[in-house]
Write a protein that binds this DNA or RNA. Structure first.
Lengths: 193, 193
DNA sequence: AGCTATCTTGAATAAACATTCAAAATAAAG
DNA sequence: CTTTATTTTGAATGTTTATTCAAGATAGCT
């Protein structure tokens, strides 16, 4: 007997970065070999194929970002400050210009959800979980009296997500940091109204 | 002497469709040959290379969509009804599930703007033109008394564009037509407030 | 220490890829 | 009709691609 040698999480994070920099289709197995330090055979043994590695990376990415998301709200005293801090972090991501800070899930939604059923299912599920988390935040914000209950928490969550998707795409076309920050503030105001 | 035989616009529209269905990277020259009916040599003679064909398709796509956009607002009696009709058409696009109805510009922003300077420049410029058009619509809506002048028209335009980008990405992950329609209505309300 | 099951290695493979180019075709000019 | 400039053709090119697999290495068990 013999156990696997590589650190699965480290490999997946390396693969994530490769996919984020070039996108799924432009990232070659050679790129992935270099990024992960794994030889082709090992990759195929562990993840079946290139798409399997993407799906595994997507799962890991979701775990990592979920932890980050929870940490942001845990660090804040109330839901509204949490939302403020969260949007600040989104703005930072948009403005950084660093591909490894961009959102792999959104990239994958745009690049492969349309043509790959399996990826579509995973990404759809992840989006629903994100929605559910944000819905709870808005419920909490209402309880805390920070926002009035004029809209359903679920719809607020959906509007926020739409806004974040939009900000990320917009910031690729328009790199002005002030504009992005202003739009994010407006989004928060609209979603809390 | 001899003039070119193919219909440039028809070729570009065929290429557009190919790019929209598979994305830029997954669309092979063979796909483009089949879609356009042009042999490789002709494509290279007319558009330099695959990226040249994409850039030309992007220009044509923008012309076509701009015409469509203007037509929507021309057909409506006032700016606010125009916005309503425009968002209805965006919802229809999102809900159709037809790749050839999706937005090539947005697809290109997400797929190649990050790695290709030339494409980034073209797409950025197109986004600015879109913004400018929508700004004029909001100015008109204010003049018509349909909305109060509490926000700058430019910011309204930017928020609308962010919302549309977001809606298109969201609809790839969540295919529920009612949800998309509700979110679009909310977007219009927020942007006109 | 020796055995064995499992993992790692990386060269080999075949398919797909973007691109080139010389030959053939053809439209316009004379 | 002939000439000429230009386009069209499509096979050939050399790369790059994802994937496989047999040989070698190694960890854990007895």
């Amino acid at each position: 007997m013999r156990s696997a040698e590589f650190d699965r999480e480290a490999v997946l994070r390396a693969a994530m970065n490769a996919f984020m920099e070039k996108g799924y289709n432009k990232t070659s197995m050679q790129d992935l070999k270099r990024a992960t330090g794994l030889h082709p055979g090992s990759i195929y043994c562990a993840f079946e194929n290139k798409k399997g590695l993407l799906l595994a990376s997507l799962e890991q990415y979701n775990l990592d970002r979920s932890d980050e998301l929870r940490a942001i709200f845990r660090d804040q005293s109330d839901a509204l400050s949490g939302l403020q801090a969260y949007l600040d972090s989104i703005v930072a991501e948009c403005v950084s210009g660093d591909p490894t800070q961009s959102c792999l899930s959104q990239k994958a939604i745009n690049e492969i959800a349309q043509t790959d059923e399996q990826a579509q299912a995973v990404l759809s599920q992840q989006c629903i979980m994100w929605q559910s988390f944000m819905k709870d935040i808005f419920i909490q914000a209402e309880k805390e009296g920070a926002i009035k209950g004029e809209r359903l928490p679920e719809q607020r969550a959906q509007s926020l997500i739409v806004g974040i998707y939009g900000l990320r795409t917009f910031s690729q076309a328009q790199k002005d940091a002030d504009v992005i920050a202003t739009l994010a503030n407006q989004l928060l105001r609209d979603v809390c109204r």
